[in-house]
């Protein structure tokens, strides 16, 4: 499968934080979810990919082209949503259109206003008077309206109510339907990623600690619930991490079927991405 985005050994060092050897491969027609707690390095990874910060090491290739050498050409075909950053709050949706048609060669005014109407966004109200959900919808509209081939989205569903979130997730799925476009999306709302992401990449302390397909995570991974006595009999090699609860142990295993064959423990739950994330971060080894 052809990759639309390739990140190799990406490193970025700050005082007190380091992004270590990030490797990402996002094939065409796929959605990759980037998860991790606040400060884990998700936004720094996105900024490094977009070359808005200077990386210390590594390589970023988008559409097969090196980002550093073909920045303008690549960025013509990328739509970006950043959680905390957009144009000034004193502009309205009509102003944004007038600005953007000078920025992108492929800016599609009709498409832009189609989304504006679909999302029921006011055209002449300044952004300062928008709700956070409306602002996010405008950011997404702007990212989609120049026919990009890759969407890079930092927390695109934050601030949205469940119905708006659902609408937007539908748009994302529609976006990748023809198999030529892809999405890299970071989100705290892991349930959203369970619905749409084909791949999940988990960043913790500036490192990728898990990169799997959604099926592998949700179907193969398991959370074993057992007593202290049962836990003591389990070989360390057979689990990833465990969490000691009040009455039981929750053990994260990579392959619940293999585990079941080896141990006589009945309760193995199907995990959510949030469960996996929690045990990875809070659990012990």
């Amino acid at each position: 499968m052809e990759n639309i985005l390739e990140v190799k050994n990406l490193c970025k060092r700050y005082e007190g934080f380091e992004l270590k050897n990030i490797n990402i491969e996002l094939p065409k027609g796929m959605i990759m979810g980037l998860i991790g707690e606040n400060g884990a390095g998700k936004t720094t990874t996105i900024k490094s990919i977009l070359n808005t910060i200077n990386i210390d090491d590594g390589e970023v290739k988008i559409f097969g082209l090196e980002m550093q050498k073909n920045e303008k050409q690549i960025k013509e075909q990328i739509g970006v949503v950043l959680d905390e950053s957009f144009l000034s709050e004193y502009l309205n949706a009509v102003d944004v259109n007038k600005i953007m048609k000078n920025i992108y060669k492929n800016w599609d005014e009709k498409q832009y206003f189609k989304y504006i109407d679909e999302f029921k966004l006011p055209k002449n109200k300044i952004l300062k008077d928008f709700s956070s959900g409306m602002k996010m919808k405008l950011k997404i509209t702007t990212a989609l309206s120049h026919n990009p081939k890759l969407l890079i989205l930092d927390e695109p569903t934050s601030g949205l109510d469940p119905i708006a979130r659902n609408d937007i997730l539908d748009i994302f799925q529609e976006f990748i339907k023809n198999g030529e476009k892809s999405i890299l999306v970071s989100s705290h709302i892991t349930s959203d990623l369970e619905h749409i992401a084909d791949y999940i990449t988990f960043i913790n302390n500036g490192e990728i600690i898990l990169a799997k397909t959604r099926e592998e995570l949700l179907e193969d991974f398991g959370i074993v619930k057992c007593t202290k006595e049962e836990f003591e009999k389990i070989d360390k090699k057979d689990y990833i991490k465990y969490k000691k609860n009040k009455y039981e142990y929750s053990i994260l295993v990579e392959n619940k079927f293999e585990f079941k064959k080896k141990y006589d423990i009945e309760i193995i739950d199907k995990p959510t991405i949030e469960d996996i994330m929690l045990i990875y971060i809070k659990g012990e080894r």
Binding site: K47, T52, K75, E76, I78, E84, S85, S88, I152
Partner: peptide
């Protein structure tokens, strides 16, 4: 924080 956003433009 527009600078961050503008830098994602071509």
């Amino acid at each position: 924080k527009s600078d961050q956003y503008i830098l994602t433009f071509p």
